[in-house]
Design a protein around this nucleic acid. Structure first.
Length: 253
DNA sequence: GTTGAGCGTT
């Protein structure tokens, strides 16, 4: 039975939290308890799950009674194949008892460990090295982003929709910001990738360096505002094909 | 039914 996490935190005054990552979405605390308990005294195993779906997030927290045991479990269970997947066990960095861990310095060396000649591994993550770091980072915006975005977007949109379809300054702001960000990023990349020297042969001599953000927006702003201040729509948006021909549904909705 | 970097609840 999984009485872990359901009864809440038993006692974190003298327990060390271990973070288990890379676990399968089907792995439960009961499955990790015996595995971790074998290496030391596990006080509690908690696996954060989604409130809406109730599915595991893919990581679990294992609380050990002693640091030496926890460390041992980390070295032993870290990289262990669980449910067909290699799990990553490491000391919890953030959490309710993070302070304790930081103070106790369990990861470094304890009075108990001191006497013991334990050559702790320099944490050589062969897995990470083998795997492409870029790919990892890129894939990062998938599961998490999806959930977060879906949740936030749906809520916000619903809220606005519920209130009124007209008068949404935030909506415009959000959209403009997103687009601006994209454009800026694209340009920024071009500069460094295409030919920075050509665009900026003498950066230090240049009296007006490329404004990144807030530095001197007048450069771009003035350009749009100076030429055709009257052309701009009353809404404050320049003539745009998209805005010029709004969908009927837009007005309807 | 899917996903895969990270940090936690009664």
């Amino acid at each position: 039975m999984s009485h872990f996490g359901r009864s809440g935190p038993p006692d974190i005054k003298d327990t060390y939290s271990l973070l288990v990552l890379n676990i399968t979405f089907r792995t439960s605390a009961d499955d990790l308890y015996p595995l971790f308990d074998k290496y030391g005294k596990v006080v509690d195993v908690f696996i954060p799950r989604d409130r809406r779906t109730g599915d595991s997030r893919g990581f679990a927290f294992v609380r050990y009674k002693y640091a030496d045991e926890a460390q041992k479990a980390v070295e032993k269970l870290d990289g262990r194949l669980v449910d067909g997947r290699e799990i990553m066990v490491q000391f919890a960095k953030y959490g309710p008892n993070a302070e304790k861990i930081h103070k106790g310095r369990i990861v470094e060396s304890d009075s108990k460990s001191k006497g013991r000649s334990r050559s702790r591994s320099p944490r050589p993550r062969y897995r990470d090295e083998h795997r492409d770091r870029d790919s990892r980072k890129r894939s990062r915006s998938r599961s998490r982003g999806r959930y977060d975005r879906d949740r936030h977007r749906g809520k916000e949109r619903d809220h606005y929709r519920s209130r009124s379809h007209s008068g949404s300054p935030d909506y415009h702001k959000d959209r403009g910001r997103g687009r601006y960000d994209d454009k800026r990023r694209s340009r920024s990349r071009s500069y460094g990738s295409a030919s920075p020297a050509r665009r900026s042969p003498s950066p230090r001599r240049s009296p007006s360096p490329p404004p990144s953000r807030g530095g001197s927006p007048s450069g771009r702003n003035r350009k749009e505002r100076s030429p055709t201040p009257n052309s701009v729509s009353p809404r404050g948006r320049p003539a745009d094909s998209r805005s010029q021909s709004p969908r009927k549904s837009d007005a309807d909705e």
